[in-house]
């Protein structure tokens, strides 16, 4: 293994995905370095979410996807949008409990688990939401709760699907601070689908632009937005 490979956490080689005869992704070669926040960008329908799903193992594909960490380590995932019935009486505590514990939520002694859930919510700065109904949360608040669930058990790699969508500017800045904290303080590598060039330039270390195939792959700093947008148009 070369010194460059040692620093990679995720390696994708010659990946292609077809759905019902349509080629969605073709010849994708991607390296995500450990400790980086790596953005996947590109126009709508470019195959970004498909690439993310392939990494999660939920998409039949050709080519290889290698994780350079222990197989038992979890990959955390924060979905773009969570469609659910807002009338279900489920609190933030319940929501996290369902994912953390096997004991049925209606039989469990809540006090013993509460501290664990609070600690998790504190990591994403939303411990005060623990007793709020999930259906009453704002987009930004819910995104932070979703991020909290992805942190248990602690992941080596965190996948985020458009974390900036449906959040106001203040919420986005808050979210960005959390991502930087997760990278710097907890050593978590983040791969995220992102359309916001501002967010990419503020928090990301590397960026890969996809439109069926890769048309840019390099550092986020110094990325020329105008060039990238022009390629969006011509591809």
């Amino acid at each position: 293994m070369s010194s460059t490979e040692e620093h990679n956490l995720l390696e994708i080689d010659n990946l292609s995905v077809s759905l019902r005869g349509n080629r969605i992704l073709e010849d994708i070669n991607l390296r995500v370095k450990k400790g980086h926040i790596h953005a996947l960008t590109g126009p709508n329908g470019a195959g970004k979410t498909t690439l993310m799903r392939s990494v999660m193992g939920g998409m039949p594909h050709k080519g290889t996807i290698r994780f350079l960490f222990r197989e038992s380590t979890r990959i955390g995932y924060v979905p773009q949008f969570l469609e659910f019935d807002h009338s279900v009486p489920i609190t933030v505590f319940d929501f996290l409990f369902l994912m953390l514990k096997k004991m049925p939520v209606f039989l469990a002694r809540r006090r013993t688990v509460r501290a664990e859930v609070e600690e998790l919510l504190t990591a994403t700065d939303c411990a005060h939401l623990i007793d709020r109904s999930v259906g009453q949360l704002s987009g930004g608040e819910f995104r932070r709760v979703l991020l909290a669930q992805a942190l248990s058990p602690k992941p080596e790699l965190l996948l985020l699907d458009e974390p900036a969508s449906n959040i106001d500017e203040v919420g986005i800045r808050h979210f960005e601070e959390m991502l930087i904290n997760l990278r710097d303080e907890h050593g978590i590598t983040i791969l995220m689908v992102c359309h916001s060039m501002n967010m990419i330039s503020r928090v990301c270390d590397a960026v890969t632009a996809v439109n069926r195939t890769i048309f840019y792959d390099g550092p986020a700093k110094g990325l020329n937005h105008a060039d990238l947008l022009q390629q969006y148009t011509f591809l």
């Binding site: 995932y77 994912m99 049925p104 209606f106």
Partner: peptide, 21 residues
């Protein structure tokens, strides 16, 4: 039912997230 309640509820609440877990 009791043994699988949390999983039933999570999968009912949102399938994508349940799958990711």
């Amino acid at each position: 039912f009791a043994f699988n309640f949390n999983q039933f509820m999570l999968a009912s609440f949102n399938r994508t997230l349940a799958k990711a877990r």
